[in-house]
């Protein structure tokens, strides 16, 4: 299947891929609102790793054919879509971080925020939400946001063997 492959030789650590991913996964799809207004703040699902200066690479989910995150997920939240994408069902996810522990790419982020509200049994005002957050290959777009945003054509969205 098509996923996003980085080419580290030309990654310049600008991190615009992260900005694009955050924007794409915001409610407004507006960069300024995504960063300044939206609560919870959307997370980037790609992570630019860097050794300054001179080496950086943007790492996101490989949508593994035999995905360790899926087998580790205790709730069934982490699952594979018929098109091959590995995605989280946020309704089911409880933030146990089993997937974080299992993913050999470190591609899953912890998304934690507080909301006002009631727990299932009426307790726990100001509920802490814990969700895992990972690349979903931007289902609303034909070209993933990070790929399109990268000014240096680092990210290739393609099928490889």
């Amino acid at each position: 299947m098509k996923i996003v492959y980085p080419k580290e030789e030309v990654c310049m650590a600008c991190r615009l891929c992260e900005v694009a991913c955050i924007t794409e996964h915001s409610r407004s799809k507006d960069t300024i609102k995504a960063y300044k207004k939206e609560k919870p703040a959307p997370l980037s699902r790609t992570l630019v790793e860097e050794i300054f200066p001179g080496l950086s690479v943007s790492v996101n989910c490989r949508h593994c054919s035999d995905a360790p995150c899926i087998e580790a997920c205790i709730t069934g939240a982490m699952h594979r879509k018929p098109d091959g994408r590995v995605v989280v069902n946020e309704y089911k996810c409880v933030g146990c971080w089993m997937c974080v522990m299992a993913c050999p790419f470190g591609a899953i982020k912890r998304n934690q925020y507080k909301i006002e509200g009631q727990g299932a049994r009426g307790k726990g005002q100001g509920l802490k939400i814990k969700l895992s957050s990972k690349c979903d290959l931007c289902p609303d777009r034909s070209i993933p946001a990070c790929v399109e945003a990268c000014p240096n054509r680092v990210m290739a969205y393609e099928e490889r063997n």
Binding site: M12, P53, G54
Partner: peptide
């Protein structure tokens, strides 16, 4: 020739 900057040219 700074490798950090040179990467800016693909």
């Amino acid at each position: 020739n700074d490798p950090y900057l040179a990467r800016r040219q693909n």
